[in-house]
């Protein structure tokens, strides 16, 4: 039995037939839509490497069935930059060396973007660290990650103030 599914992925509507309800959003993206920027680190919701935004909120795509998210609006790491123009979080990750091996990085960046939308941490490093704790980094790039998020939070706050 196949199921018709419609998703908006990185702004583009994708309609397709899903022949297997077991497919997670993560495996759908990686193995069927060839969007491999989203990573599988544990497949059990324990590392955050698969973080994407669904309807604007960050979730672990490994613990989400694709079929249950029919109609959802999905943003992955591939949809964050505008061509050559990096998202401020992406640029800040490079500037602050917020990664080493880079495997957790797409998840970290999506998580950071989601975190900023949640607007719970502000520019308090302690809150940022807590709010980013759903993304493990084995290389230990946490300092750079926090600095990158802080920089973007601070510059966005400044822009709001001057606007």
């Amino acid at each position: 039995m196949t199921h018709s599914i419609s998703l908006t992925v990185n702004g583009a509507r994708r309609d397709f037939q899903l022949d297997d309800p077991r497919v997670t959003l993560l495996d759908l993206l990686r193995e069927r839509l060839q969007l491999t920027g989203t990573k599988k680190g544990c497949d059990r919701g324990q590392c955050g490497a698969c973080t994407i935004l669904v309807d604007g909120k960050r979730i672990n795509s490994c613990l989400a069935l694709a079929i249950s998210h029919d109609g959802a609006d999905i943003l992955t790491i591939e949809g964050v930059a505008r061509g050559d123009q990096l998202h401020p979080v992406q640029a800040a990750f490079i500037a602050h060396d917020g990664f080493q091996c880079g495997f957790c990085t797409p998840g970290q960046i999506m998580s950071a973007i989601g975190m900023m939308r949640e607007a719970q941490a502000g520019d308090d490093p302690e809150r940022i660290r807590e709010c980013m704790s759903g993304n493990l980094c084995r290389c230990g790039a946490y300092a750079g990650i926090v600095d990158a998020v802080l920089e973007v939070q601070t510059s966005e706050a400044n822009q709001r103030r001057s606007a």
Binding site: R30, E31, T38, E78, Q90, D97, F99, G102, F103
Partner: peptide, 27 residues
């Protein structure tokens, strides 16, 4: 210098082994 592979990594374009999918591939 910042990482020369940085842009690829922050855009999700750095291809790690499991990101490959040659035609006809099985799992």
């Amino acid at each position: 210098l910042t990482r020369r592979d940085g842009v690829l990594k922050v855009k999700g374009q750095a291809a790690y082994a499991a990101d490959h999918h040659p035609p006809g591939m099985l799992f």
